[in-house]
C-alpha cells in the first residue's frame, strides 16, 4: 500500500511537480524537497507557528498538513513576500522596530501578519495580539512584534492612499 503520489502545487508563484508519500508533512516538502527553508520547524507539534505558510488564502501550520492535502494548492512562504534586495513592508518594519532578536520565529510571524493585515488592514493593538496568538516567540516579549505590525499597517495604508 501507500505508494508515492503525484503532487502538483504552486509555491511562491512557481509551479512544482513531484512524487511523494502522502504522509510527508508540508513543512518537510518545503524545506527538504524544494529547498524553501524560510518556514522553520520549532515545535513540530502544532503549537509554535514557526512553520506558518499561506495555503489557498489561509494561514496554516505546515507541520500539521500532509503534502497530499496540499495537492493542487497555492502556497506562499516568507520567500514569496520579499527578498534581501526588496524587503516586504513587514520585513522593513520588523527591522526598523526591533521586531526580532534571534529571528527564528520571524518568517512565521511575518507570513501570518501579512494575512492578518490583508483581512484587517487597520487592526487595533488588541486585534494584532489576538490575530498573532498562534505564533510563539522566545526572545522579544512580543511588544516590538506588535509595534512592527502596527507600523507596517500604517505604512501600507498610506501607500494605498497615495496610489489612489
Amino acid at each position: 500500500m501507500s505508494g508515492k503520489k503525484h503532487i502538483t502545487m504552486t509555491v511562491n508563484g512557481e509551479a512544482q511537480e513531484f512524487l511523494a508519500e502522502p504522509r510527508e508533512l508540508l513543512i518537510h516538502t518545503l524545506r527538504e524537497r524544494l529547498n524553501i527553508t524560510g518556514p522553520h520547524i520549532g515545535c513540530e507539534t502544532s503549537h509554535c507557528g514557526a512553520c506558518t505558510v499561506t495555503l489557498d488564502g489561509k494561514s496554516v501550520k505546515s507541520c500539521t498538513v500532509f503534502v497530499a492535502q496540499a495537492d493542487g494548492a497555492d502556497i506562499t512562504t516568507i520567500e514569496g513576500l520579499g527578498n534581501p534586495d526588496s524587503l516586504h513592508v513587514l520585513q522593513e518594519a520588523f527591522k526598523e522596530h526591533h521586531g526580532l532578536q534571534c529571528g527564528f520565529c520571524t518568517p512565521g510571524m511575518i507570513t501570518r501578519a501579512s494575512k492578518l493585515l490583508e483581512e484587517n488592514p487597520s487592526p487595533t493593538e488588541e486585534e494584532v495580539r489576538f490575530g498573532m496568538a498562534g505564533n510563539i516567540c522566545r526572545c522579544t516579549g512580543y511588544q516590538n512584534i506588535v509595534k512592527s505590525i502596527l507600523a507596517a499597517a500604517t505604512e501600507m495604508n498610506a501607500a494605498k492612499e497615495a496610489a489612489e
Binding site: 502544532s46 506558518t52 496554516v60 501550520k61 489576538f130 496568538a133 498562534g134
Partner: peptide
C-alpha cells in the same frame, strides 16, 4: 478555540 491558524483548518 485554539488559535488563528488552527481555526482556518
Amino acid at each position: 478555540i485554539a488559535d488563528p491558524q488552527v481555526r482556518y483548518m
